[in-house]
């Protein structure tokens, strides 16, 4: 069943129950996001906290990736409250991302750059110091280079690895130490990774990249 909703004054149609984020993206309305995945309809991770929007009738901004569309919904993707919240979340992510666009393989094709451009945000955090984690770059796999200091923990590579039939990488530890890694933290080259490159395609930033030939 189709429903009609209004996003930023524009009327769009979407299938009832679709998450608002996908309804917006399918209609050419950009909402920043890193962790969302279409196939995770049951329980979206909702971890990056960048897709906040304001919906009429809701007391506070909500994440678009977790909100099923309903008839007559009126959405504002960039109210002042939303903008402040997204800016804060983005600054937090950037305070934990090794910023090296010039040498980064994702330069020009990076979701962080896209968000910064779309929302007129600085890539370099203004108020917050950079939190270093001192994690070494792993270039042990045949084709793939993994730089955990650039990882934004969106989990897309983990899904891609599993969809490919492998399960080499996963989340481990918790809190600030949370990391995408292999079982026992062994280098990718020793983990059974077949260098299929699916994780590289999935990575929205430059954390997983192909080796330069």
């Amino acid at each position: 069943m189709e429903v009609t909703i209004t996003i930023d004054g524009k009327q769009i149609k979407a299938r009832k129950g679709t998450m608002l984020l996908w309804a917006a993206l399918d209609n050419g309305i950009y909402i920043p996001h890193l962790c969302a995945a279409r196939e995770e309809t049951e329980s979206p991770p909702a971890s990056c906290r960048l897709c906040f929007v304001e919906v009429e009738g809701y007391p506070a901004p909500v994440t678009a990736c977790t909100l099923p569309v309903a008839e007559g919904m009126v959405v504002n993707t960039s109210s002042e409250r939303v903008n402040r919240l997204v800016a804060a979340g983005f600054e937090l992510i950037m305070s934990n991302h090794r910023l090296d666009c010039k040498n980064c393989p994702a330069n020009g094709n990076c979701e962080l750059q896209r968000i910064a451009k779309a929302r007129k945000l600085r890539l370099k955090p203004k108020n917050l110091p950079v939190l270093h984690r001192d994690l070494p770059v792993d270039d042990s796999a045949e084709n793939i280079v993994y730089d955990p200091s650039k990882c934004v923990l969106c989990g897309r590579c983990i899904r891609a690895c599993r969809n490919h039939g492998q399960s080499v990488v996963g989340f481990a530890r918790r809190g600030f130490e949370r990391v995408v890694t292999t079982c026992g933290d062994v280098p990718l080259g020793e983990s059974g990774c077949d260098s299929c490159g699916e994780c590289v395609k999935a990575c929205p930033v430059g954390a997983m990249s192909l080796k330069k030939k």
């Binding site: 909702a46 971890s47 906290r49 110091p129 918790r174 809190g175 949370r178």
Partner: peptide
């Protein structure tokens, strides 16, 4: 809370770390 944060979401994982620092 910073040690006990699950680390999933941006605000809690990084925000509490900055506050603690």
């Amino acid at each position: 809370t910073q040690k006990e944060s699950c680390g999933k979401c941006t605000f809690c994982r990084l925000g509490t770390k900055h506050m603690l620092d």
